[in-house]
């Protein structure tokens, strides 16, 4: 009996010893989730209090500094383009043929009535750059084993001070995320699903965002196609491209 207990504790400690380092997990997630560049088409379903809307767009992004999005539907948004360079954002509207610069204080406003702000959309730094991680638990989500990581920011300007993230133990893809305020208050919850293998990377193609402080159904984001490491011509990331 005593032996058994020793054995069990030993196994446990052994498990603990061999369990992957939290930062390593996060790094693997980053490697999955980020790429030199990517081009994706996406569909965003925004649930309003009264109606839901479907917005499709194509986005070209390179690193986390440059991105260019063109809206494809509905007709009202067709041709609207958004260019982000560093922390600057320009929006072009074909109906007015104007390029409007969104200055700093506007960046925190919601995009298209969604649960995302311009700033949220612009912040796609690697998780390992922003957070230090700690492995706290293992859980099963959607029949997949996950590591539960608690991420605490190590930089000053993270949107969320703390995150809890459920990472698929095989594919190193986050399946669920909870965002917390500095005070520990839960702010937002996302669930990621429809994980697909794309160019050798596992990638969740459907994300549901929900602002837990507000009543409402949240925002669904689905990538209908995604390509990594393409040849994106440089001019895409210039203001001239907005008017094309």
């Amino acid at each position: 009996m005593k032996l058994l207990i020793i054995l069990i504790t030993a196994t446990f400690s052994l498990f603990a010893f061999t369990s992957p380092d939290a930062m390593e997990i996060l790094d693997k997630v980053d490697r999955n989730m980020s790429s030199r560049n990517r081009i994706f088409e996406s569909e965003m379903i925004i649930h309003g209090r009264r109606t839901s809307r479907n917005i499709t767009s194509v986005t070209y992004s390179e690193g986390n500094k440059q991105s260019f999005t063109e809206y494809l539907s509905p007709a009202r948004e067709l041709g609207t383009k958004m260019l982000k360079l560093g922390n600057q954002l320009w929006i072009y509207s074909p109906s007015t043929d104007r390029i409007i610069q969104i200055s700093g204080h506007m960046l925190r406003q919601s995009v298209m009535g969604s649960d995302l702000s311009y700033e949220d959309m612009m912040d796609d730094r690697k998780l390992t750059e922003i957070y230090s991680a700690e492995l706290t638990d293992n859980e099963i989500i959607d029949n997949r084993n996950t590591y539960v990581l608690v991420l605490t920011t190590k930089v000053e300007d993270a949107t969320y001070f703390k995150q809890k993230i459920w990472v698929d133990t095989e594919r190193y893809v986050p399946l669920k995320q909870e965002m917390f305020a500095k005070s520990g208050q839960l702010l937002k919850r996302t669930s990621l699903s429809e994980v697909k293998l794309i160019q050798g990377k596992w990638f969740p193609t459907r994300i549901i965002y929900k602002d837990v402080l507000k009543d409402g159904e949240g925002t669904e984001f689905t990538m209908t196609s995604i390509k990594f490491d393409q040849n994106i011509p440089d001019y895409i990331f210039t203001k001239a491209a907005l008017k094309k």
Binding site: T51, I55, G113
Partner: peptide, 11 residues
Amino acid sequence: STMNGSMMFKT
């Protein structure tokens, strides 16, 4: 933004 929350531009 429009009543639906889309971006609204009008000159």
